[in-house]
Design a protein around this nucleic acid. Structure first.
Lengths: 337, 337
DNA sequence: TTGAAAGCGCTAACAT
DNA sequence: ATGTTAGCGCTTTCAA
């Protein structure tokens, strides 16, 4: 790790450091012959740019930070992959900030823009990751930020997500169409806007179908397989046992299906199960899982594109981007006789 | 995002910038009263440290980069989480470099140490991520690097992994003990040392049991569910159909079990399946998956600890850390009558 | 077309 | 205990 800098190149090529810098970064500002000589010299001395120094000078780090509750969640991952792709293409690196749902970690990662380690933020959370109260946010003091899949409720940030409410309506309507009336719900974290909107959609769909939803069949969870497992157990013990369960994530559905089988229930013969997200695993389950697909790739690409534009000073044309969802009909739901 | 620096604090507190710097970072170098005043001033002007500038000065970025083939793989994730935990505790941030198996991306991420954006590397790959040929590696020119789960074969880097060969022996022996003779294998990417060692272990175990392994029952895959699916189909068409399949990853097992069921085979009644990794999903499968558990948390913690020590100039006491694996007996394997 | 020189914001000798 | 000052390595006016 010998430290070779443009100074060394300059010495070797017999030019000034300014010329080296130009040759390296602004082709055209320098005579072709000189440029070649500099490039050769750079190669000979084994030069690598000190990006830190360059960033300090230009105040542009070339990093974006993605604040995400759980990198492991396969659903999130589709989004990350797409973000990474776009970022890389445009010369940015992605810092993944896994928060495990901690608001403190969210703020810590967001602070990386203040400390100049990142140029922008993609936020998958419903919380504003800054210390100031929402009312005191100064629009022009805020770093470039795009809100993905959730809403902070502050409309100074562009938002990219599906229409959770409508998606839940579609899922519920599918169950209703199959003749289900006693439909249970296992929600995600009710702090999140996604979960609130889905629940709202569920209730709306029931009402539209002329059905009364049963409050006791709504179990409040947290998007995890574990909560799916325990929620399912709770539901099975009820006298008014549901014939269908709408899980607000595939992870929940996974735990739910597991518990169902443990207690001798067959899916979908005894109970229909529908998930949400369409994680890659969903099709490998037995039975394969009917679920609502989110266009993770689109979401990720859109987020990244908007954010990088924002960093470059280009404002997005709208503040809310709604991506299309799709109901994936598979084998875990069944029409009642 | 007004730019407030230590200069502003200095002005406000009526001291020099040096005193501000000391007050902020070296409590004790400065009188308690002054320190309080500086801290208050910092707060008032809304100061955030420009880490870039600090890094440039100290040539320590406070970042480590984790080079990983696929962040989405739940198995990898256990490791990442542990790394992140240790790093955070010691004041480092983790940059996740998802390479999708690309050697080029591996080199790009590794170059972040040269460009001073990271202080060290945790490498989950069997390839050395530098441009130089292995023979020309200059030990003291190399950045701090820890090799996780795989081996580059270069022993200048400490390595943390399980004993893949022994783990494969244990898995194979379990099947043999259950009376299986026609045992198939679906491998991971054979470029990886993990897969090579596991295959070696499989063969050794067969030999130890006095059994001849059948070359045609070895299908070369790539650790993915998809390859598990197609490999299983291939195996089912064979006249000498196996009674047990040893999958080199749980993902493979997932695809394998799916294909098996598609073709009407029951697990474990018709075919036993054993996986490798013990991803969280494994227990939710039906039947639950017998597999070899890797201590992902231990691996991640150890990697991070060694790397950070290395960065601090402390050499590890050994060059190979072998972590214990564990056979998880569940329901996907069965004793032949 | 090239070069001299002024910083980016911070830390750390060194001096007071 | 506090302050002065010289850079870290680069980019970027501005002048030659």
């Amino acid at each position: 790790m010998a430290k070779v800098g443009i100074k060394d190149i300059a010495a070797r090529a017999g030019v000034s450091i300014a010329t080296v810098s130009h040759a390296l970064r602004k082709p055209g500002r320098v005579a072709e012959a000189t440029r070649k000589r500099v490039l050769a010299a750079a190669d000979e001395v084994g030069y690598t740019r000190n990006n830190l120094a360059a960033s300090l000078r230009t105040s542009r780090s070339g990093n974006i930070v993605v604040i995400i509750p759980d990198v492991a969640d396969s659903y999130n991952y589709g989004i990350i992959k797409a973000i990474e792709k776009v970022a890389h293409r445009r010369g940015y690196s992605v810092l993944l900030g896994d928060t495990q749902g901690s608001a403190k970690r969210e703020r810590e990662f967001a602070a990386m823009t203040r400390s100049r380690q990142a140029d922008g933020i993609i936020l998958m959370s419903h919380r504003i990751p800054f210390d100031v109260a929402r009312e005191e946010l100064e629009p022009d003091e805020l770093p470039p930020l795009v809100n993905a899949c959730e809403f902070t409720g502050y409309d100074g940030f562009p938002t990219v997500s599906i229409d959770d409410r409508q998606a839940a309506i579609d899922a519920t309507t599918h169950l209703v169409d199959f003749g289900h009336v006693d439909i249970a719900v296992i929600t995600g974290d009710m702090e999140t806007t996604s979960s609130r909107n889905r629940l709202e959609g569920f209730k709306a769909a029931m009402e539209m179908a002329g059905l009364q939803h049963n409050e006791r069949l709504i179990v409040y969870g947290d998007y995890s397989a574990q909560c799916g497992e325990s929620a399912a157990k709770t539901l099975l013990m009820r006298k008014d046992r549901p014939t269908a369960i709408f899980c607000f994530s595939d992870e929940i559905a996974l735990g739910c299906m597991y518990a169902l089988r443990q207690h001798g229930f067959e899916i979908p013969n005894d109970v229909s199960v529908i998930g949400f997200d369409n994680i890659p695993f969903a099709r490998y389950l037995m039975p394969s899982l009917t679920t609502v697909a989110q266009p993770t790739e689109d979401i990720g690409e859109t987020c990244a594109t908007i954010l990088l534009d924002l960093i470059d000073g280009r404002k997005p044309d709208k503040v809310r981007y709604v991506m299309p969802h799709e109901l994936m009909l598979r084998q875990s739901t069944r029409r009642l006789a």
